[in-house]
């Protein structure tokens, strides 16, 4: 069985690939709506999220409050218009757009460019 819940054709399309610096990390269908998944790129743990309307975001997986690599396992939602993830450890909420912690603006997690190339999700790490 397959649990493809959306027609992949309906997923957002991006323009022609320029490949330098981008790493393909998984298929778009490896991500479920409003959930995250963790990928390993050059030893770095990156949490990749797919929101309800199919937008993609990538942040560090390390939760700065607990020191555990768990952000990809948090609940994805919104605060106001901002897409967010809540740490599964102690529930601090982070903006998926900026990486900033909305409950403690002095703290942030790194964010990474992410794009869809064909059916593949690609992230760019510096």
């Amino acid at each position: 069985m397959t649990i493809l819940r959306e027609n992949p054709a309906a997923a957002p399309e991006t323009a022609a690939p320029e490949t330098a610096g981008w790493t393909a990390v998984c298929a778009y269908t490896d991500l479920l709506p409003e959930q995250g998944a963790c990928v390993l790129v050059d030893g770095r743990q990156i949490a990749v999220f797919r929101t309800f309307d199919g937008e993609l975001y990538a942040t560090g997986n390390l939760d700065p409050f607990s020191g555990a690599c768990v952000l990809s396992r948090g609940i994805v939602g919104t605060r106001g218009a901002e897409p967010t993830v809540a740490s599964p450890m102690h529930k601090q909420v982070f903006s998926l757009v900026t990486g900033r912690c909305l409950d403690d603006p002095a703290t942030a997690v790194p964010t990474y460019p992410v794009r869809l190339s064909g059916g593949a999700v690609e992230v760019r790490v510096p």
């Binding site: 409003e34 929101t51 309800f52 948090g74 609940i75 994805v76 939602g77 919104t78 605060r79 106001g80 897409p83 967010t84 809540a86 529930k91 909420v93």
Partner: peptide, 10 residues
């Protein structure tokens, strides 16, 4: 409204 959060979703 919106798409929920770690309070309402569970």
């Amino acid at each position: 409204t919106g798409r929920g959060c770690d309070i309402c979703k569970p």
